[in-house]
Structures are given as structure tokens and as C-alpha cells.
Design a protein around this nucleic acid. Structure first.
Length: 294
DNA sequence: ATCCAGGAGTCCG
DNA sequence: CGGACTCATGGA
């Protein structure tokens, strides 16, 4: 077992609420307050059981402890996944001056940005979610994972790995159309896979840029990656606090509900609202999304 | 049936 | 850059 000291402002239960938002989720399971997650580390399948006890995050390995190096990789994954290196003090400070943020922050305090550490998963999941309702997006993802992903069954539970870009790079669009992907989405997903196989695109390269604009421009040059998708991926995978998917429909609905508006806010209204969110747009959006889950 | 959903590409001025 | 149009498929 590995213990991880959580940062200030960490609420495991709030994170679990987010992780449990879809009943079509198959990339992790929540059982009795633990998160079960299958990873591949050094070509080895490793099952993680993540819990919270005695003010510490505990990562157990139900299938047996892997080598120490692999355990450390697993711990790094958890830090990445739960955004544990982020200090939220600045966010909570600006939230105090904003009526809408103040409300969601006081409700969900300690919620971290639950990320998608795998760049390929972040990009392709975002593409799947473009312009369709979330329920159907989850259906598409489930089919995609079950068709092209790897799985392992342990003690009667089946755990899945997201498909790899090298696997998807070798299929053709029709294989995705069978799963009800539109022709466009099939092209986008395969295009991204091939870009990654060709080493034109990697998380390491993007992180090395370390400048919001540069990353955004690079991502949106890829076919199928518009501004929304680029910002979504920068939020969920690249830890860019200033990432701001301002056209996001979920954001619009959350704001509408929080402010009791008759209609969704306009882009101009959102920009005015978000003027005080500078540097913390991603967390602002994430907390507002959280407010949509009951 | 009708509206719309965690948009993107293209064309056009 | 910003608007208008088109695509595409299922949920509620």
C-alpha cells in the first residue's frame, strides 16, 4: 500500500460524487467508498483500490503489489488524476468575491479537478462528446472501450482500459461508424490516433509548451479539435487553470440555474461574469459542472 | 414530433 | 475575426 498526503482543501467524498456521475462508466468503479481503477504500468496490469483513511489517501493493490517503480507510477497517476499538486487557496479567494462561485465553492469545497491523465483519452472523449447529449456520449464511449479496449476480470468484477492510440490508428472509419459514430467523429478520432503514433502529438510536448496560447493554437490546428475541445483537454489533462471552454452548453445551463435566469447567458454576459475568474477559469467551470449533478 | 445536446468545418465578407 | 450555414445522431 502507498499513502499519499492530500493537499489542503481536499474532500474525497466530493471527488467520489463526481466520479460516480454516470451509471455507464466502465473505466473505474466505486464500491463502498473506494475507487477501483485498472492501469497498465510497464506493460503490466495493475489494479488500484483508492480510499481515504486517517486523513490520507491510501492506494492499495488488490491483485498483489507490483514492483516499487510501478507503485510509484500508480501514485503519480493518482496525483495527476485528482489534481493533488494544485493549491486551491487562490481559487477560493477569488470565489469569495463572486456570488455565484461563492455558493458552489461553499457547497463542494475540497472537490479537485478530476482529470483524464491520458491525453488520447481526453482528446477522443471530448470529440465523442461534441454536440450530442451526454447520455449518448457515454454510450458511444462504452461501445468504444468494449470494442477496442483491454479488460481484466478479478473477483467477479471486470475492469477496462481505455483503447490505446496505436490500436485505433490501425482501424478504419467504418469500424467506428458501426458503433454509431458519425463519419466526421470517426475521422477525427482516427486522425488524432495517427498524429500520436506519428509523434506529432504527445502530452509531454504539450506540457513542455507551458503557455496557454501556444498549446491552444497547437491543438486547434488538429482536425476535429476546435476551441471548446482544446480548452476541455487543457482543463482535464494538462492542468491549465486558465483553460476556459466558454461555449460549453453545460456551463451555460449551470449559470442559468445558479442565477435563476429565464434563458441561458449570452457569450458577452459570460465574459463579463468571468472577468473575476482570471487564472481560475477551469476550476470555476468544473465547480459549476458539479452543480449540475443534483 | 420537435428541440437540442459538454461543436467543428467551411464559406463569406 | 465573427456570423451563417451544414453536418449528424440519439435523448427526452
Amino acid at each position: 500500500m502507498i499513502e499519499i498526503n492530500p493537499p489542503e482543501d481536499f474532500n474525497f467524498k466530493e471527488c467520489l460524487v463526481f466520479l460516480g456521475r454516470s451509471d455507464q462508466e466502465l473505466l473505474h468503479k466505486i464500491i463502498d467508498g473506494y475507487v477501483f481503477k485498472l492501469l497498465k504500468v510497464d506493460k503490466e496490469l495493475v489494479l488500484l483500490k483508492i480510499g481515504y483513511k486517517n486523513d490520507a489517501i491510501q492506494v492499495e493493490f488488490p491483485m498483489g503489489e507490483p514492483a516499487l517503480g510501478a507503485q510509484k507510477m500508480a501514485a503519480k497517476y493518482v496525483v495527476d488524476w485528482f489534481d493533488l499538486d494544485q493549491d486551491l487557496a487562490g481559487f477560493y479567494e477569488i470565489a469569495q468575491k463572486d456570488q455565484m462561485l461563492h455558493r458552489v465553492v461553499s457547497k463542494y469545497r475540497g472537490l479537485r479537478m478530476i482529470g483524464i491523465p491520458d491525453l488520447f483519452e481526453a482528446l477522443t472523449w471530448a470529440i465523442m462528446g461534441q454536440q450530442i447529449n451526454l447520455t449518448f456520449a457515454y454510450t458511444l464511449r462504452k461501445r468504444f472501450v468494449e470494442r477496442f479496449g483491454e479488460s481484466l476480470t478479478f473477483e467477479g468484477e471486470t475492469y477496462w482500459l481505455y483503447p490505446t492510440f496505436s490500436r485505433i490508428a490501425e482501424i478504419d472509419a467504418d469500424a467506428l461508424r458501426e458503433l454509431q459514430f458519425t463519419a466526421r467523429k470517426a475521422e477525427y478520432v482516427i486522425g488524432v490516433s495517427r498524429a500520436m503514433v506519428n509523434e506529432e502529438l504527445s502530452k509531454e510536448d504539450l506540457l513542455r509548451m507551458e503557455d496557454y496560447q501556444q498549446i491552444h493554437v497547437y491543438l486547434t490546428k488538429l482536425r476535429g479539435i476546435g476551441s471548446w475541445t482544446a480548452d476541455y483537454v487543457m482543463m482535464k489533462c494538462l492542468h491549465q487553470r486558465a483553460a476556459f471552454p466558454i461555449t460549453d452548453v453545460g456551463l451555460h445551463n449551470a449559470v442559468k440555474i445558479q442565477l435563476g435566469l429565464e434563458r441561458k447567458p449570452t457569450l458577452v454576459e459570460l465574459k463579463v461574469m468571468a472577468a473575476g475568474w482570471k487564472g481560475w477559469e477551469a476550476y470555476s467551470v468544473f465547480y459549476l459542472w458539479r452543480s449540475l449533478y443534483v
